[in-house]
Amino acid sequence: MFRLHDVSKFYDGKVALRPTSLDIAAAQTTVLIGPSGCGKSTLLRLMVGLLTPSGGEIVFEGQQLNATNILQLRHRMGYVIQDGGLFPHLTARANATLMARHLRWPKKKIGDRLAELTNLTHFPADGLDRYPGQLSGGQRQRVSLMRALFLDPDVLLLDEPLGALDPLIRAELQTELREIFRNVQKTVVMVTHDLAEAVYFADTIVLLRDGVIVQVGTFRELAESPADPFVTQFIQAQRGPQQNAMGPT
């Protein structure tokens, strides 16, 4: 789905991501994880073209990302950020349907798609005409997800989608989100700093540190054959008190 070849990113001479190569498999959930500042968000933002790589190339479905094709390609990617990034001046409905309306989809098609997505995300129909300021954090993330899925993209990119939610809602939404990923059968790339969450969602975990990928694999592979002492250290640090929350592995 995504093929990154020697992609790097520098800001003002500082390294955010060292030359990195990575393949993202289709129809799987890949989770980017690591301590803060490790480059996981940078990697995701490079994929959606919000950042331009300082070196290397990113290929999406056989097409190299560049300034001319990025707008078109983004229609095939859904992007969700922490706390939704919803436009406060638009209702939930207007937020979700914004891009489809801009592309002049017929009204009927928009209505049908919206009904489908409210079902999928369990978003209450009477909330559609509310503004983001009138919705709870969990509801806002559902709208954000509807917006990201509206054009039926090939891939869903999520940057700490549950990061701003309180623990109860977070647990509830985790379950639902995994349900949704299973239903839509899409390629998912998700950034989190929480190992439990990563383990819960991931087919493949990509662990980063200081702008370098330390190891790529399943949780079992990371736990049983760590590529670097840091891998064990990272797993140990997060395990302890949260062991119960880790869910089935």
């Binding site: 919000l50 950020i81 922490q82 706390d83 436009f87 001046h89 914004l98 891009m99």
Partner: peptide, 24 residues
Amino acid sequence: QLRESARALGLPRFARWRLIELPL
């Protein structure tokens, strides 16, 4: 993050300006 959301949706520059930035 709102500017980025608009870009990430794939809205062209003028549409971003008209639909998002100006109203905000």
